[in-house]
Write a protein that binds this DNA or RNA. Structure first.
Lengths: 218, 218
DNA sequence: TTGGGCTTGTGAAATTCTTCACAAAGGTAT
DNA sequence: ATACCTTTGTGAAGAATTTCACAAGCCCAA
């Protein structure tokens, strides 16, 4: 169940690149707020984010007009707006499957919780890990995921298992009613259309860097 | 038409999205090769990668024509070609700065080495970590990076430190002559134009997922 | 050797995303 | 109140990327 203070709806399709930039802008705005800046111009945000002021304004214009001509944007107001737009006005309950290095790193990363992503459960298939605890988060058997999900709601599932197990975990999450999956396994996963997924594949990133490096001089 | 052996040079600009897809295709080709498939069509690659056959053919056509009409692509040949294109025909020497969770996870990930990314050195600023070893890789003081780089060449630098230290580490890497940087810190870094960087920001990915989740029903 | 079934490679069209450029509007100083 | 400086919001133009659609090429069978 969603409980937004102000329900936002947009006419236009939102490019993924815009969402990523909004997320960046939000980071800068939080820094600016901490340092007591009252307003910020699209030009300053652009410089910080390595883009252009026109791009910043276009990005924001999809969602409304938040600035004052001649002045810029009020930092606290725009911060709030971006948090709303990105759905960060609330806590998300996250279930991580895979108590390996990535899973544990994520569960322990303080910035993750600060952003409202609350790791409520950690799952693994290995009997050696099941039953242990990590910072008060118990590691449970992955086969319990579906039954647990019936009792406590999970908004986001994180796949942090080897490639071969990724699709099985995805299927389990879908069966458990999870509608958003973050996949850290180096594998494509298939899910129904009403489930959103994002795959972060570090290998891919390194290969892209390799390509760039191999072609630097050309 | 076009038929070149190494060294490869292209007339067209290569979209980043194309590079990422080529990397994906390569993964599928390696699986197909293992399972003994002799040929593969653009349609099959498209299905595996969640794209269209026209997209697959366009992606490849930037670099040449590798297929046979009516037949498809020879799996071993295309695999080799993609490895060449992505610069994976050789080992890259990687220096990781930051012996925290991400740095260590990367240094220990077997798939990383298998792809030709050889972690030759690990650096950290913490006296408690400097001098320890990780799977035979010694953790050295980050201040030694520049002088080490003069002796042993590093192709890729990995930034795996907190956001506040990211720019300092980037500057150190640039001073050490490193031309490609993979940044895992949640911060923008600035480098000279002849240095390529990629930033992997997990927080950004989760916020994009949050946005998608918050807007699922709209 | 011919015909039929497949699949590539690629111009051209369509779509998506970014940049330009400027009217409109807010602020300040005089 | 006016002049001037600044910065937004946004149509329109431009650039980049994806999709369409089909001729050309390859294989196999008869």
């Amino acid at each position: 169940m969603k409980n937004f203070t102000s329900p936002i709806s947009y006419l236009k399709r939102v490019p993924d690149s815009t969402v990523r930039r909004l997320s960046l802008y939000l980071g800068f705005l939080e820094e600016l707020e901490d340092s007591g800046e009252a307003t910020v111009s699209s030009d300053v945000l652009a410089r910080l984010g390595g883009t252009t002021s026109a791009q910043v304004r276009k990005d924001l214009s999809i969602f409304g007009s938040f600035g004052k001509r001649g002045l810029g944007y009020f930092v606290p107001e725009l911060t709030t707006r971006l948090r709303e737009i990105l759905g960060l006005g609330r806590d998300w309950h996250v279930a991580i499957v895979g108590a390996g290095k990535i899973g544990l790193a994520l569960a322990q990363y303080p910035g993750f919780r600060e952003k409202g992503f609350h790791v409520s459960a950690l799952y693994d298939a290995s009997p050696a890990k099941v039953g242990t605890r990590l910072d008060s988060i118990p590691v449970r058997d992955v086969h319990r995921l579906a039954s647990d999900a019936a009792k406590e709601h999970f908004d986001i599932g994180v796949i942090a298992v080897p490639a071969d197990d990724a699709q099985f975990v995805a299927d389990t999450m879908v069966a458990a009613g999870i509608k958003a999956i973050m996949n850290f396994a180096p594998a494509q996963i298939t899910v129904p259309a009403d489930v959103v997924t994002r795959t972060v594949n570090m290998g891919l990133e390194f290969e892209a860097l390799s390509f760039a490096l191999a072609n630097l001089s050309k």
